[in-house]
Simulated assay, not measured.
Amino acid sequence: MECGYYDRDLCRSCTVIEVPYARQLARKQQLVRDLVDSHGEPRWLEPVASVEAGFRNKAKMVVAGKVGAPTLGILDRGGRGIDLRDCPLYPEPLTRAIHALAEFIARVRLLPYDVAKRRGELKHLIVTGNPDGRLMIRFVLRSTGQLAKIRDNTDLLRELVPHADVLSVNIQPEHKAVIEGAEEILLSRQGELIMPVNGIDLRVRPRSFFQTNTRVTEQLYRQVADWVDAVDPASVWDLYCGVGGFALHVAAPTREVAGTEISAEAVASARDTARAMGLPDEGPGSVRFLADDAAATPADLPGTPELAIVNPPRRGLEASLCAWLENSSVDHVVYSSCNATTLARDLGRMPSLRPVEARLLDMFPHTGHYEVAVLLRRG
């Protein structure tokens, strides 16, 4: 992939962009195989490649510059803004929206936050797009001082970005490297962005997590659904379920599925999708969601599932959850990981659950990051 920002040494976020993509993929495959194979030598399926450009469904832009002349992108080492509004990682609808939002910020005269001086208001702009070009736009402010400026000019905002379904302001008052705060102020009637994935209309709220590469995410969900259907368990737990992607993909008429996620917003979105799909929340064919810490799930849900899906953050599973899975009667586990190092550590904590099949899915071309899914079987 060609990138003028990289060539001009303005942005080095894509750390391996100079490596041919086929070689990037082969390196990642070898890395995860080296870490996983010592725990059982699973059969490795063909890696899932991404398109090389235009794959990101979310742009997180630092806002800098001056009133009337903002930059949207990153900061240099001196804290000055580097404008990246034409980054080739974003699909065309996101790029158009970023340009329009820069115009909105300039015309409304929002005050960019100055990191060095600790002054200003607008810190970040977060734009999420779905496959149909619909958008969720979030302004991250230091305080509510310029909230009225945004609220009073939503007509202009919708004129400039007509495909925006969800508009919100997030308040992040602290001077530290945290993109968003706990307070979200919704400015639109619609509070969820519909994210169609494999025929399921997932719902994403402003503070909910969703994978940044929608096409590869579709294949991840299909792969996990194929594994689950081949095992055909009567009961499934989806731990760290997010907005319910895995749980809703493995729903079946005779299967009971339960998902747990610590984010109440994500659980609310998952429940909304389940209701829209007409799925009951108890009995055969049910899918229900619980706002809970994944490590606490065994104590908070009755019984034991025949199969568990785990999709933890980079730090991996809690040791207590590994111990419970190891000593439980769970026959199969599907582990989706963005960090093969912690995945390998957790496999070492669960020696009775052996990897039998695995697949690399490249969510993040031009970087060292990836997703890997592994099917584990007891014995």
Rank of each mutant, 00 (worst) to 15 (best):
G4Y: 04
Y6M: 02
R8D: 11
L10K: 05
C14Y: 09
C14K: 03
V16L: 08
V19H: 06
P20K: 08
A22S: 13
Q30K: 15
V32I: 14
V32M: 10
V36A: 04
S38P: 13
G40A: 01
L45M: 14
V51G: 11
R56C: 03
K58C: 09
A59L: 10
P70E: 08
P70H: 09
T71A: 01
T71R: 07
L75G: 04
R80I: 06
C87P: 07
Y90K: 01
E92L: 08
L94V: 14
T95H: 02
R96L: 14
E103P: 12
V108C: 12
R109L: 13
D114P: 06
V115G: 03
R119C: 06
K123L: 09
H124E: 01
H124K: 02
V127H: 10
T128S: 12
G129K: 02
N130Y: 00
D132M: 12
R134H: 13
I150K: 04
A164L: 07
S168L: 11
N170L: 07
G181W: 02
A182M: 13
A182T: 14
E183P: 01
E183D: 10
E184K: 05
L187F: 13
G191F: 11
E192P: 07
E192A: 15
P196H: 11
N198G: 03
D201T: 05
L202I: 00
P206D: 02
T217Q: 10
E218P: 03
V228I: 13
D229E: 02
A230K: 09
S235P: 05
L239D: 03
Y240C: 15
C241D: 06
V243L: 09
G245K: 07
F246C: 01
A247V: 10
L248D: 06
E256C: 05
I262H: 05
S263A: 09
V267W: 00
A268R: 14
A270K: 04
A276M: 14
L279H: 03
L279S: 05
P280C: 07
P284A: 11
L290H: 15
A291T: 15
T297N: 11
A299G: 13
L301Q: 04
T304R: 08
T304V: 14
L307Q: 02
P312I: 00
R315W: 01
L317R: 08
S320D: 14
S320R: 15
L325M: 04
D331Y: 07
Y335L: 13
Y335D: 12
A340P: 09
A344E: 00
L347S: 04
R349G: 06
L353M: 08
V356F: 07
V356K: 05
L360N: 04
M363P: 03
V374F: 14
